[in-house]
Simulated scan of single mutants.
Amino acid sequence: MNNPCTLKSVLFQHLPHYQQTHTLSPHQSQVCSHILTCHTPALGSVAEQQCDQCDYTRPCYHSCRDRHCPSCQRDASQAWCERQREAQLPVNYHHLVFTLPSSLNARVSLHPEVIYRTLFESVWNTLSHFGNDPKRLNGQIGATMVLHTWGENLSRHVHLHCLVPGGAPMAFT
C-alpha cells in the first residue's frame, strides 16, 4: 500500500536536499521542524488505549499546534470554511490576488505589522471603491482576505488572496 502524500512526507524526503542549496529563515526552519515532529515521539505522548489481552498501550502523540501545520489546523480550517459557507450571498464569487511589489519584500522583515496592515487597508480601499462605484456594483461589498507570506518555493512572497462576491446590497447614502 502506498503511503499518502502529506506535507510532512514531502519535507521529510526533500528538505535535507533543499537545504544543501537554500537557506531557510529561522521562522521557516522552526515551522518545518514543527511539522516534521508533529504527532511523533519527539513531542511526547499520552496513553490512548490499552489492550485487555496483552497490556499493550497505544500512545497518542502530541501535536505541534503550529498554525502552518495541516494536521493541527485541519479542524479549525474546516470550521472556518463552514462559517464562511453560512455567510455566503447567493451570487458568484471571484478569487482575486493582490501581491506586494517584490521591491518591498526586504522591508517586511523590518516592519511586518506596518506592511501587512497597509496591504490589507490598500486592498480593502480598492475593493470597496469598486463596489461603491455606481458604474460597477453600486453597493456595499464584503470580502474574505487571507494573507500568504511565502511562495511555493518557500521564498518571501507577500500576497493577499481575496474572495469577493460578484454582487452587493445597495449602498446607503
Rank of each mutant, 00 (worst) to 15 (best):
N105M: 11
T21C: 02
E82F: 10
Q30G: 10
Q49H: 14
E121M: 06
L119E: 03
C72H: 02
H62M: 12
C32I: 08
R58K: 10
E121L: 10
I35T: 02
W80R: 04
C32D: 01
S71L: 10
E48H: 13
S128P: 00
Y18W: 13
H17S: 09
H129Y: 11
S29A: 15
L43Y: 05
Q13G: 03
S45P: 00
V10I: 14
H39R: 15
R107G: 05
H17G: 06
V91D: 06
H27I: 05
H129F: 15
Q20L: 01
C72T: 07
F120D: 05
Y18R: 02
C54M: 03
V91T: 15
S25E: 02
F98E: 03
F130M: 13
E86P: 00
W124K: 05
C81H: 12
D75C: 09
D52Y: 12
C54D: 02
R65I: 12
R107W: 06
G131W: 12
S45Q: 05
L24W: 12
V46G: 01
Y18N: 01
R117Y: 03
L7N: 07
R107A: 11
S77I: 06
T57R: 13
A79E: 03
Y116I: 11
L43C: 07
A87F: 00
V46W: 08
H111E: 11
N92K: 04
R58C: 01
I115C: 05
L100F: 02
Q30F: 07
H94M: 06
S33V: 07
R117A: 15
T21D: 08
E82G: 07
G44M: 08
R67W: 01
S45T: 00
H14I: 04
P26N: 01
S63V: 08
Y56H: 15
T118S: 12
T118G: 01
Y116Q: 11
L89F: 08
N105K: 06
H68Y: 12
E86W: 02
V31S: 03
F98N: 03
L24E: 04
Q30L: 15
H68L: 04
T126Y: 09
S71F: 08
H39Q: 15
Y18A: 07
S25C: 01
Q78R: 14
L89W: 06
L24A: 02
T37K: 14
H129I: 06
L7F: 05
C69Q: 07
E82D: 11
T40G: 10
A79V: 09
S109H: 07
A42R: 09
E121H: 11
C51W: 03
Q78S: 06
C69A: 01
V46S: 13
F12G: 10
Y56L: 13
Q78F: 09
L110T: 12
T23R: 10
Y56T: 14
P90H: 04
F12P: 00
L96S: 04
P41V: 10
L11F: 03
Y93M: 02
E82H: 15
F120E: 01
Q84I: 04
P90E: 01
F120A: 08
I35N: 06
C51Y: 03
S9G: 08
L43M: 04
C32G: 02
N105W: 14
Q73M: 08
A76M: 04
Q84F: 05
C69M: 09
E82W: 12
V108N: 00
S25N: 05
P90M: 07
C54E: 08
A76N: 11
P112S: 05
H27M: 11
